[in-house]
């Protein structure tokens, strides 16, 4: 018995002694691999980020330097004042307030309305639900530009031209993609939860409000971000429907730097960067939900 125990002990000791070398080997291999990974990813990132750098660099150059040939990679003179001049070149304060107003309304509309519609498609059985949902989805296939002119005619007949209605009201009628995205999310909520609430005496509206909304928060965040992005960056909508300069959005405001003869590239880039800033900040905070939205699109959870 003792001999056997001794042998086992010895074997264990040997195993422990040989462990570090064994692990070392794997460690160096892993390190090397991750280094290669890092280099490849860094190179890719630099490539993708280069236009942004070009924007930043241009925004800080003087107009004369922008025009030099060959172009300079980074500004000789860092004109931080460009940013202040840009902001003062037009009533950007007003534009910012306008943009924020429109964007907020669009986000609120998108989040509530799409969620409500999606709840209906996912959790309320009714006749023709499948067909109706297919029709809603099929609108995703229609390119926006096809409906542009009919929509313009519609809104002009409603005398909504030169108001925010054409930019905000459509958000309160749902969008196929958001409905689809939220419906997929609702499908993962067990029916029993809805049924339990029904038996407890809640109406569908109440169930949606007290159970649906809180439980779909991640998907709602995705919708909020996507619609924020869309509304904030929208150029065509405001361009079509807004004539009065007091109603202009930031994206339209940037046009002041684009003359008929020449464009003030440095100011345009500075302005673009300022306008882009909120979106970038938003992305940093809500990356997770951006990615989730893209995952939902591809059908995964």
């Amino acid at each position: 018995m003792e001999e056997v125990e001794m042998a086992a002990k010895k074997r264990d000791e040997e195993r422990v002694a040989s462990a570090p070398a064994y692990f070392d080997n794997i460690h160096t291999k892993r390190k090397l691999l991750s280094l290669i990974n890092f280099i490849l990813l860094a190179a890719g990132s630099l490539l993708i980020l280069s236009p942004i750098w070009w924007m930043i660099s241009t925004s800080l150059k003087s107009m004369a330097e922008v025009m030099t040939y060959p172009p300079t990679f980074y500004p000789h003179e860092w004109n931080w004042g460009n940013y202040i001049k840009t902001w003062k070149a037009a009533p950007f304060d007003t534009y910012a307030i306008n943009t924020i107003t429109i964007t907020m309304l669009v986000v609120i509309g998108s989040v509530l309305v799409n969620s409500f519609i999606a709840y209906g498609f996912a959790k309320v059985p009714f006749k023709g639900r499948g067909i109706l949902f297919a029709i809603v989805l099929s609108t995703m296939m229609i390119p926006g530009f096809v409906t542009l002119i009919p929509q313009y005619v519609l809104f002009s007949k409603l005398q909504w031209i030169n108001t925010y209605y054409p930019l905000v009201v459509p958000a309160f009628f749902g969008s196929a993609f958001f409905i689809f995205l939220l419906r997929q999310f609702y499908m993962t909520i067990p029916n029993e939860l809805i049924e339990a609430a029904k038996i407890e005496g809640a109406s569908h509206f109440r169930i949606w409000w007290t159970i649906g909304l809180p439980l779909t928060k991640p998907a709602l965040a995705t919708v909020a971000i996507f619609s924020f992005n869309g509304a904030w960056n929208d150029f065509l909508g405001p361009l079509l429907y807004l004539n009065d300069e007091n109603l202009y959005t930031l994206q339209l405001g940037l046009q002041v730097f684009k003359g008929e003869m020449n464009t003030q590239w440095n100011y345009l880039m500075a302005g673009s960067l300022l306008v882009l800033l909120p979106v970038i900040i938003l992305f940093f905070f809500f990356q997770k939900y951006f990615i989730q939205g893209i995952n939902l699109q591809s059908g995964g959870k």
Binding site: P190, E192, L193, E195, A196, A197, I199, I211, L215
Partner: peptide, 10 residues
Amino acid sequence: AMVFQNYALY
């Protein structure tokens, strides 16, 4: 009142 198999707690 109803109790469900998977409890259905919120």
